[in-house]
Write a protein that binds this DNA or RNA. Structure first.
Lengths: 106, 106, 106, 106
DNA sequence: GTGGTCTAGACCACG
DNA sequence: GTGGTCTAGACCACT
């Protein structure tokens, strides 16, 4: 509900969500230690399936920003520093998924 | 299974399939709102490759008759009115998408 | 929604639900082969926790009336014959699973 | 068809499949460079869903034994040496998934 | 015709 | 009542 996830571009949905969630950590909306919304809730907020949500979160877990604890929730464990933000991370993503982000973000 | 798609003529396969599918909408066999068979199924039914099926469907999507939704299926969204029939339509297409149809069609 | 599950009595909640579900099979409301409502749905219908629902279903699975298939659902696999009715059955359960039912049932 | 994947034990299906596939590499049935069966085929062979197959393969990709190439297939890129086999790997798995494999394998 | 993403929705394991 | 696994089956991107 809060944000928007446009389907039109030829960009992967789960990567769009990944960027949004990462931004929340970088901007300080989600600080280290807090529990983020449940997967179910994120499904509703962004109107995507749970697989898409899990895919986005998994990437952030792989990078060490989030930690999942079964039965409890998903938590922020590392801050995203602005400089190691999007542009830099794109390289990691591109390594794994090939080029596809032609994006900017000031 | 149902139909047959002969390769012999010097006509593009996907255009033959395109005509068949369009006819189904025009004849009312496929009405607005219904989900058409999956790409996989169409491959089997007409014994053609995935690319051929997607090419045919893509044309119908471009013309606004079908709509694809990833993870869900392909749906009929507009009726084909009889008068804008096959032969005529191909001309329209060629006009609009000159680069798309590399010619042909007897 | 349909039924009500009062917490007041000194009876285990999951046993009340167990009785209700068993009755549905006995009465023929749920016949062999059908899929019963999801655990999630039962939680809502009777306003109980997931654990309560799973406890009740587990007992019916143990007795051979229901079968759970991950990713698919829970199904009725054996009819409850009227004569092996509730009160009697609880005794049987207690005999077989002494440690399972920690007692009670007025 | 070839193997068997018993559902009964409380072990994750995708890990059972993971072990089977890994064994094929270790035993030399699948050698470096060859293309393994398609995901679709593995679904049929072991009667599991594609998600389960992908989960099993993903683990082997993470460990560097397999490599997926979109549009082409999945290939063996590193041999499983017997000594770094199951027992040792279990540590990695246990780190990620907690204890659950009580397994042996000579 | 392969692997990649996505949907929808179920039960499972753990707090 | 959360995250974890699983099913079933669709379209997408690429070769």
């Amino acid at each position: 509900m809060e944000e928007f996830l446009r389907r039109d571009e030829h960009e992967k949905l789960y990567l769009k969500l990944y960027e949004i969630l990462k931004m929340k950590i970088e901007k300080g909306e989600w600080t280290v230690g807090i529990q983020i919304p449940t997967e179910e809730q994120l499904c509703k907020n962004y109107d995507v399936s749970r697989a898409t949500v899990r895919n986005a979160i998994s990437e952030l877990v792989r990078e060490g920003y989030l930690k999942r604890i079964q039965g409890k929730g998903t938590f922020v464990v590392k801050k995203v520093t602005p400089r190691e933000s999007i542009t830099i991370n794109l390289k990691d993503i591109m390594k794994e998924h090939g080029t596809f982000l032609h994006k900017s973000v000031s």
